[in-house]
Amino acid sequence: MNKLLEKIFQLNSLAIVGIEKNVGKTTTMNYIIEKAKGKYSLGLTSIGIDGEKEDQVTGTEKPTIYIQKGTIIASAKKSYLSSDITKEILSTTGIQTPMGEIILFRALSDGYIELMGPSINNYLKTVIKQMKALGSQLVIVDGALNRRTTASPSIAEGVIVATGATVSRNMEEVIEETAHKVSLLQIELERNYDRLKLVKKALKQGKVSFLYDDKLQISQELTALGAENTINEGLTSGANAVIISGVVGDRLVENLIKSPIDLSDKIIYVEDGTKLFLKEENLRRLKLKGLKLMGVNEINLLLITVNPKAPDGYSFDSHRFCYLLHEKTQIPVFDVISNIGVGLE
């Protein structure tokens, strides 16, 4: 694990995402923070949630973590005021969120803090840059695989995925589910420079676009949800690829699978795998029909961390859990509680 840790601490930024709520992401975060103490200065922020204040207040986990003195934090004013650390304001950002303006501050003592970061990619990038400029060696971004963010963990140089026994009582199911989500994160990237340029342009300018060989057509659709007809028409009329900015869910995909359209060699482009919310079955059926899912932003998945204990009380055999998960995904797996790792070299 030490080698992998060294690699991690050489990065500029690291995103830690949980497969689902309450899976033990905070434990992973605390683990990394502990490993950094005395050696590396950290910056911390989180990917916020878009949308109304209520969503922000009720809808999601705002991680409360115990941080070390010297950490730099980028978080909303509300979280500044509610943290119990002794702190120093370094700068304000002008970035507004429902929880107040994002403030950059430094911890002058250890203590508890709730992270409430920006929800938009560009703001997230800005904030990471600013923390690096203020001296953070590694910026950790707390994220989630969640429909309600526009921002993506792909913004970080490396990504850790956290999973655990809370996903299901059945270990095989946890492994299936985790492996499935991991494979979504690892969809193929478009490497062709010209194509990539077109696709990126489309993602910026529209929600649903089409590629006819090298001609781009951007539709007027305001969201992919409900745009099934447009997508079907586009593909029927000869488009090689559909470019979707935002979430691609089961409904959209099932609609395609049910239709008589020939999907072989067609491509659906998304920003990255975090925008895919598909059942394993649908993923398989798409593959059978010959349709490829491709991404634009790389998700550099370095590690899967596991918490073999569930709050309900049951727990898995850590060795077996890690081994099987590694076998299925071929990604290094590490149990942060019992310090067991598989495939770490």
Partner: peptide
């Protein structure tokens, strides 16, 4: 005033 106001 709060800290952010003093800062500004």
């Amino acid at each position: 005033l709060d800290d952010i106001e003093f800062y500004e």
